[in-house]
C-alpha cells in the first residue's frame, strides 16, 4: 500500500451519494482521479457538495454506489472502523477555521494524529526521530516560534491557527492532504503566505493535495483545477 505502488492517489468511479432522507443525490461523479503528488484545486459554489466530496474521499461518508480508491485502499468496501483507521494513517485534514482543540497546547494539537494512529506515529518517528521532533521541525518551518509551542492555543491569530492546523495535517507525511477552504478566514496577504507554505510543505512531504475553495483566484498555484459542477452529473441535472 506504499504511495508509489498505486497508480492514483485518489480514484472515484461512478460514485453517487445522497444524504439520508434526501431523494436526490448531491453528488453523481462518473470519474475523478488524482495522481500521486498532484496538487488539485476544486472550486464550486456554496452548497454544491465540495465538503461532501471531501467527506467521501476521507472515508467519513460512504457512497451509495460506486468505487472510491484512495492510495490503493478501496474505501467503498471497507467497514467504518477500518476507514477511520485509514484516515488517521493516510490523510491529513485542514478545516476552514477553528481547527484547534482549545485545551491542548500547540504541540499537543499537532501530535493528535500520531497519538491516534500508530502508523502515523511510526512514520513521524522514522522521519525525524520522534513525533515530537517531527512536530517541532514542522512548526519551525511554518514560522511558529518555540515560545508558543507549550502555550494554550486560544490566543493565536487566525493565520497562526491555520498554520498549526497545517502542521497537524502534515505530520507523519500522509500521502494525501485534504484542505476544505483553509484560507477563507484569512485576509489576502496571510492567505498567500499560508498557501505558499502549505504547497512547499506538501512538496517536501511528497503528499498529494486536494484543496477546495470557492475563491477561484487561488487556482493559479495548482497543477490541476477542477470545477465540481462540471464533474457532478447531479448538478448538471439540476441546472438543466
Amino acid at each position: 500500500m506504499a504511495p508509489s505502488s498505486a497508480p492514483f492517489a485518489v480514484e472515484l468511479r461512478d460514485v453517487r451519494f445522497s444524504w439520508p432522507g434526501q431523494a436526490r443525490p448531491v453528488l453523481d461523479i462518473a470519474h475523478l482521479s488524482i495522481r500521486p503528488g498532484e496538487r488539485v484545486f476544486i472550486s464550486g459554489p456554496s452548497g454544491s457538495g465540495k465538503s461532501t466530496l471531501l467527506g467521501l474521499i476521507a472515508g467519513i461518508l460512504r457512497p451509495g454506489c460506486g468505487h472510491i480508491v484512495v492510495n490503493g485502499a478501496a474505501l467503498h468496501a471497507m467497514g467504518a472502523s477500518a476507514r477511520d483507521r485509514f484516515r488517521g494513517a493516510e490523510i491529513g485534514f485542514i478545516f476552514q477555521q477553528f481547527n484547534l482543540i482549545p485545551y491542548l497546547s500547540m504541540l499537543e494539537n499537532v501530535l493528535i494524529p500520531c497519538r491516534l494512529s500508530a502508523r502515523r506515529q511510526a512514520r513521524a518517528s522514522r522521519q525525524a526521530g520522534s513525533p515530537r521532533e517531527a512536530a517541532a521541525r514542522l512548526l519551525e518551518r511554518l514560522d511558529l516560534a518555540p515560545a508558543l509551542w507549550e502555550r494554550p492555543v486560544t490566543r493565536l491569530s487566525a493565520g497562526q491557527q491555520q498554520r498549526v492546523a497545517a502542521a497537524r495535517a502534515l505530520i507523519g507525511a500522509p500521502p494525501l492532504l485534504i484542505a476544505d477552504e483553509p484560507s477563507s478566514a484569512l485576509d489576502a496577504d496571510r492567505r498567500d503566505i499560508f498557501l505558499e507554505l502549505l504547497l512547499a510543505e506538501c512538496a517536501l512531504a511528497g503528499s498529494s493535495l486536494l484543496f477546495v475553495s470557492h475563491d477561484g483566484a487561488l487556482a493559479k498555484a495548482f497543477s490541476t483545477t477542477l470545477r465540481l459542477n462540471d464533474l457532478n452529473a447531479a448538478a448538471r441535472e439540476e441546472s438543466a
Binding site: 476521507a58 467519513i60 467504518a80 472502523s81 477511520d84 483507521r85 484516515r87 488517521g88 494513517a89 485534514f93 478545516f95 477553528f98 481547527n99 484547534l100 482543540i101 482549545p102 493528535i112 494524529p113 491516534l116 494512529s117 502515523r120 497537524r168
Partner: peptide
C-alpha cells in the same frame, strides 16, 4: 468542532 477535529485525525465514533 472538537469532535470533528478528532474524527478528522482518525478517531472512531466509539
Amino acid at each position: 468542532r472538537e469532535l470533528a477535529i478528532l474524527r478528522s485525525a482518525g478517531a472512531r465514533p466509539l
